[in-house]
Amino acid sequence: MAKFIMITYYLLTAFIATLFFWNFWQEKKKIDRQILYLLVLIPLLLRLLRIK
């Protein structure tokens, strides 16, 4: 059960990371927003890459 929940959370993390990346890519004008999307992406990527 714990493993199933863990995998579900990894899938959720991947989904949210994809959303942030999509928003970053779609943002055309505001550079501050682009930077914010990338900053928020960092912990999600570190977890997906199993580094932290």
């Binding site: 550079i31 682009q34 990338l38 960092i42 990527l45 570190l46 580094i51 932290k52």
Partner: peptide
């Protein structure tokens, strides 16, 4: 161009601590 520069910065910011944390683990 801005996006690509920002992405390169992100990769750089990620790699620097990631190497240290990976080596520690």
């Amino acid at each position: 161009r801005t996006k690509i520069i920002l992405l390169i910065c992100l990769v750089f910011i990620l790699i620097w601590p990631a190497i240290q944390l990976y080596q520690h683990r």
